[in-house]
């Protein structure tokens, strides 16, 4: 078994320095919107929290961790945080599966199609789409979570963002429950599949 401490400190260091758990630069990670024609202004901002974009990295990292779990290499995880983040991030970005990346890109683009077809007045600003920090909370690094959440909430507030559409339960929970509780910042958060968006809800319920 890997030592939880090594993994937690590595993830915490990645979030601190690169704002996501993998140490991958956001410009490499968040590319699904390229080639789409998404408005930069509107009523409510689409906020993916980079969770779908993380899936190829999660799969690849998990595969490698499993491979080395019972070997002596497991002891070297703790030194991971001393490696230059850009190199690690670039390596992960190159090693992760293109097929998986395409799959998650398609998922997000399909969500956009559903929202558009349902005439939801939304916009997207990739530079404001941050990871929520929820993994730090789940792992018990409450100080790391609060620091990161404060950073994200401040960026959103600075740009006047008040309403968000989320696409996954982890980011939704973080923004809806944890941010008000730990950072004192409240946003109007709705999931795209929630009943609040009646048209989306009806469209998703329709067979086929």
């Amino acid at each position: 078994m890997f030592k939880p401490r090594d993994i937690i400190e590595l993830i915490a260091d990645n979030v601190k320095k690169t704002k996501n758990p993998f140490g991958v630069p956001s410009v490499l990670m968040n590319r699904w919107w390229k080639g789409t024609d998404l408005p930069a202004e509107g009523d409510v901002m689409l906020f993916t929290g980079l969770m779908y974009q993380s899936v190829p990295y999660i799969e690849m990292t998990t595969r490698h961790l499993e491979r080395y779990e019972d070997s002596t290499l497991a002891d070297y995880v703790k030194y991971g945080k001393y490696l230059p983040k850009f190199l690690v991030g670039l390596g992960l970005a190159l090693l992760s599966s293109k097929k998986e990346k395409k799959k998650t890109r398609d998922m997000l683009q399909n969500i956009v199609k559903v929202l558009t077809r349902s005439k939801v007045d939304f916009y997207y600003r990739p530079e404001l789409d941050y990871y929520s920090g929820v993994l730090l909370y789940d792992l018990g690094d409450i100080d790391g979570f609060i620091t990161h959440a404060r950073f994200v909430a401040e960026r959103l507030r600075e740009k006047g963002v008040k309403k968000l559409i989320t696409v996954d339960p982890h980011t939704t929970y973080a923004l809806k429950v944890l941010y008000p509780k730990y950072v004192g910042e409240t946003f109007e958060v709705k999931t795209y599949f929630g009943k609040e968006f009646r048209q989306v809800h009806q469209l998703l319920r329709r067979p086929g």
Binding site: R5, I8, D138, L139, G140, D141, I142, D143
Partner: peptide, 15 residues
């Protein structure tokens, strides 16, 4: 369990 994780991490970090 979550609270105990926080306690343990705070111990690791000396806080």
């Amino acid at each position: 369990i979550l609270g105990l994780r926080r306690y343990v991490i705070a111990n690791w970090r000396g806080t």
